[in-house]
Each structure stands twice: as C-alpha cells, then as structure tokens.
Design a protein around this nucleic acid. Structure first.
Lengths: 196, 196
DNA sequence: GGGCGAACCTGACGAATGTCACACGCGGGG
DNA sequence: CCCCGCGTGTGACATTCGTCAGGTTCGCCC
C-alpha cells in the first residue's frame, strides 16, 4: 500500500483528489494538509511514502517546502510554468504533474515515483528546454516582484530598503532581460515563465 | 437521480470532482466538458438537471455561458471575487460555490438548486455587499483589460481602434475610480474584485 | 426640446518612468 | 593578484504616463 499525503489549499479539490485516488487499490491517502507551513509536521507525523504538493498555498510556498522534505515529492499544480519545473527539480522533487493530466497518469506517476523513478510532464519538459533559465539576478527578481503588485518606485524602494535610483536600475535591467517594454510587461513575462 | 454536467478545463480536477460526486447516491455525473464553447451543445445532448460551471475556461467564459443556459447552473470556481458573484447573479445562475468549500456543501448545493433553491457562498455574499458594483464603464473596462497585459498606451489604442489620448483618459478614469496610483495597480484592484 | 451621461477626440503640463554613464566595495575564479 | 560580475548608489536625460481643461457627437429620459 502506497501511503500518500495531499497538500492543496482548496478543500474541495483536496477531497476530490482523495476520492479519485481511493479508486486505486494500492494507493491510500493518509493525510491532507491545507497550508504549506503545516506540511513538514504532517509528514513527520504520518510518514507517507509520497507527498502530493501544490505550489501556491497560504503559509508557505510548495517549492520551498519540497526542499525541506526527505520523502518523495510530486508537485501537482495548475500552472505549467517552465520556471516552476526548474525550481522544483532544484528542490529535488521526484515528479511534476499538472492538474490537466489524466487520473491514470497521476496514479502511474505515484507508483513510478514510489518505485524510485522520476516523472515529468512531457509538454512542460519540452517548454522548459526552449525557455531556458531565469536571466534575472536575485535582487532584480525581488524588485520586479515588489513592483508587480502595482506599487510605485518609491514603494518598492521603501519595501526593499533601497534607493529609488537602484530600484530603477534593477527594473530597467529586468525590462531589458525579459525583452519587455515596461515594468508591467516584464512582470507578466516573468510571471508566466515562473521566474517570480 | 440528479443528472449533473461538469464543465472545468482541468482534466484531473474534473475527474476528481466526478469521483467525489460518485459517492453521493442520488447524484450522477452524465457528462464532462473541458471548454466553455462546448457546454451549450453538451447540455442539449445530455439534458442534465444541474450544470457545474467553472468560470475561467478556454473557448468561452463560464459566466457568459451561464446566461445562455436555461437549466439550473452552479458556478464552481477557485476565485471568490465579488464581481464574479454579481455577474453570475445577473446571468441568472442558481448557485455560487467556491472550490474551497466542503464536499457536503457542494452536494447540498446541488440538491438545493435542483429543488428550486438558490445557494450562495456565505463569505462571498458578505464581501459582495461591501465591495459594491463595478464603477467602470464598458470602455474603461476594455481599456484597462487591454492595458493589464503590460502593453503600452499605443498598443492599447491600436487594439481598441482609439486615439492614444482617449485611452489615456479611460485609464486615468479607471485609476481614479479604483483609487489606484497607476495602471498596474488599477488593473490589480479590478482583477481581484472580478471587474474585468 | 433640454438635460445628462457616455463615447470620442485634442492639447498641454508636471510627475513618474526608463535609459545611460559612472562610481564604489566586495567576493570568487583564473 | 587582478579582473569580472553583482549589489549599491548618483546624476542627467528623453520618453512615457497621469491629469486637467476643453471640445463634439450621440442616445436616452423627463
């Protein structure tokens, strides 16, 4: 029996996914978690064989959680952003499945991963090869993320404890590197690539 | 037996939701659709009692689909945006459930709606009362939506066949009405309220 | 018909933004 | 050791953006 822990912030999706997996005779959902910051404790308590992790959760980011777990992890997310896949691989996850997959694919991925394999969504793997790594430095990312919400330069500078001129330089660099024509577009491009 | 049609763009979520509803003895999922523009034909073919509609789908928006259906509709969406609820009500839907609800709530909503009732998520109804209606005119909305992607004023003007000055005026009005300090923030505010 | 608001447009002005050149300190790799 | 890239900062400049005041044309309602 493969013991699975489910982490997803939407209750209905979590229950539904559990219902779906209950049809698999060799898979058992032993726990459900709705916040990223509760996953580590739940894993310690329930000792699952595989953790299904959503990325966007309250409390803590699924990708950073994955880096702290030493059980096998499958990222199960809505958004097939190339950057997500890359970061997930860096975090040492064993599988990456998008929520548009078939139920059989998910079950197969769980079995494969449990047996020591690695499973990655095909289309995403292809997209990841073409998109390449994030060209932004850590500070540029931070500045772009802070600016994405719609704040002004002064806001970003205040939040990052930087001089406004520096923020402008970072954003300018981000705009150039993403090939965008202004902050908003740069933020959108970085967002869809999973660079933020 | 209550006949249900499921419309959601994510295959796994759709299958999982069907699995969840299969545990309810009086509910039967008779069809699944993955695109908004296929819902009307599927309803004509399968004659469900209730349609579960996601909002954000490829092909066609769930809210506009709802307006064309004369069966009972429950909107089932991730995003509890007040504006979505308002537009859903205008479209004549019978229920509005967020994906963070419990499975029992969803089943209860299906039964209530099938019996002629109306079901609306409590927290969302409260939020909807405080937020109020969308203050933007149709053109302002269009301009803001076109600008949200990150394009420049000239881009928006070209896409809407308007003069750049007019676009600036619309965006300025949108910024004023949303209480934002620039386009990006206005777009974000309108987005979270479901006004776009 | 008169008033009103929305859709369109123009022109002008100040403020914010994007770009560039340049400067300094720091750490890592050749 | 010395260079290079990164983080940090400054100042100047052109462009874009946000605002305002004004104008014309509709259609709708009283």
């Amino acid at each position: 029996m493969i013991r699975v822990l489910l982490a997803d912030d939407q209750h209905l999706v979590r229950q539904a996914m559990a219902a779906l997996l209950s049809f698999e005779p060799d898979i058992e959902v032993v726990a459900e978690v709705e916040r990223g910051d509760l996953v580590v404790a739940a894993v310690a308590e329930h000792r699952p064989d595989v953790v299904l992790l959503d990325i966007e959760m309250p409390g803590r980011d699924g990708l950073s959680v994955a880096a702290d777990l030493d059980v096998k992890v499958i990222i199960l997310t809505t958004f097939g952003r190339p950057g997500y896949l890359r970061r997930a691989m860096d975090a040492g996850v064993s599988g990456f499945v998008v929520k548009d997959a078939r139920a059989e694919e998910l079950a197969a991925a769980i079995r494969d991963v449990c047996a020591g394999g690695r499973v990655v969504d095909r289309r995403l793997a292809a997209a990841s090869r073409t998109t390449g790594a994030c060209p932004l430095t850590a500070r540029e990312r931070a500045a772009l993320r802070a600016a994405a919400g719609g704040g002004t330069i002064a806001d970003v500078a205040a939040r990052l404890f930087l001089s406004p001129g520096t923020v402008r330089n970072y954003l300018s660099a981000a705009i150039r590197k993403t090939g965008a024509r202004n902050r908003a577009e740069a933020a959108r491009i970085a967002e869809t690539n999973g660079w933020l």
